[in-house]
């Protein structure tokens, strides 16, 4: 026993190394899966505060781009206002209609932390639980997808970016209405990959890829990107389609967090499905 202690004491450098290394590896396996960011995570208000402070600085350098994007977005929304339309039809009228029920509401948020050069990219936003942000809400801009909330602390939230190797999004080719799965292979942050589109479908470069609405997270029909290139790998009966994202993930500054009022209901259905 005494010899053992002496042995460990003499080689403590190696044993300390072993302990620290094993501890790190345990941390990796416990925390690195995108849903299990529980123990310590950078959404905590301390790091969030520091990131917000530095984000203010970096965003100051890109104000010009941010303004341009916001102005374009405003123009789009003006185009949708009832006052931009002339009424042609005098027969229809509108009153409080119980046929419609609100499904989505939007919370605007500012990005305070972002990365595009990792395999698994995450963003930090300056809205959290007190603003009504919860796990599994979608994050979008007016012309593209950004990601989904994986965790919310009191004032901040952590978002798994679309450019994350864990991402799987149900997507649809707008021209042919075929449903596939969009993922990101961890290489170029400008392009994603759409799979599961059967090989008999006609595809053209430039076709729009939109969200399918089959997920309980993303609203239906939202633009993701356009087809850049497509091919059928040997022995495969499905296309592999390169999709050019409609937004530059390096130049996103303000986003919208989407709350789906029917999410719980859909999830409950799905859970019951699983039981049977």
């Amino acid at each position: 026993m005494r010899n053992l202690i002496v042995f460990i004491w003499k080689n403590y450098f190696f044993f300390l190394f072993l302990i620290l290394e094993v501890f790190s590896l345990v941390l990796i396996s416990k925390n690195n899966y995108y849903q299990r960011t529980v123990m310590v995570n950078s959404t905590s208000d301390f790091t969030g505060g520091i990131l917000e402070w530095s984000g203010n600085f970096w965003q100051y350098l890109s104000l010009k781009d941010a303004n341009k994007i916001l102005a374009e977005e405003n123009a789009q929304f003006y185009n949708r206002l009832p006052s931009s339309f002339i009424k042609n039809d005098t027969n229809t009228f509108y009153f409080r209609d119980t046929l419609y029920k609100r499904q989505y509401s939007y919370i605007s948020a500012k990005i305070i932390g972002n990365s595009t050069n990792r395999r698994n990219n995450y963003l930090k936003l300056n809205k959290g639980q007190i603003h009504g942000v919860k796990k599994d809400m979608a994050v979008i801009t007016s012309n593209g997808l950004v990601g989904q909330v994986v965790e919310a602390s009191k004032h901040f939230c952590s978002v798994m970016s679309v450019i994350n190797t864990h991402t799987r999004i149900s997507a649809r080719l707008k021209s042919s209405s075929q449903i596939g799965t969009l993922k990101w292979d961890g290489k170029d942050y400008r392009t994603g990959t759409l799979i599961d589109i059967p090989s008999h479908v006609q595809i053209h470069v430039g076709d729009s890829v939109i969200t399918s609405g089959y997920s309980y997270i993303y609203p239906e029909g939202h633009l993701i990107g356009t087809v850049e290139d497509f091919r059928i790998d040997r022995g495969d009966s499905f296309y592999t389609i390169d999709v050019r994202f409609s937004i530059d993930y390096n130049k996103v500054f303000y986003v919208y967090i989407v709350k789906n009022f029917f999410q719980d209901e859909l999830l409950r259905l799905e859970r019951n499905e699983m039981k049977e």
């Binding site: 941390l27 396996s29 416990k30 950078s42 520091i50 990131l51």
Partner: peptide
């Protein structure tokens, strides 16, 4: 700070 628990430490 970068949501990658343990990787840089290891």
């Amino acid at each position: 700070f970068s949501n990658s628990m343990g990787i840089n430490a290891a």
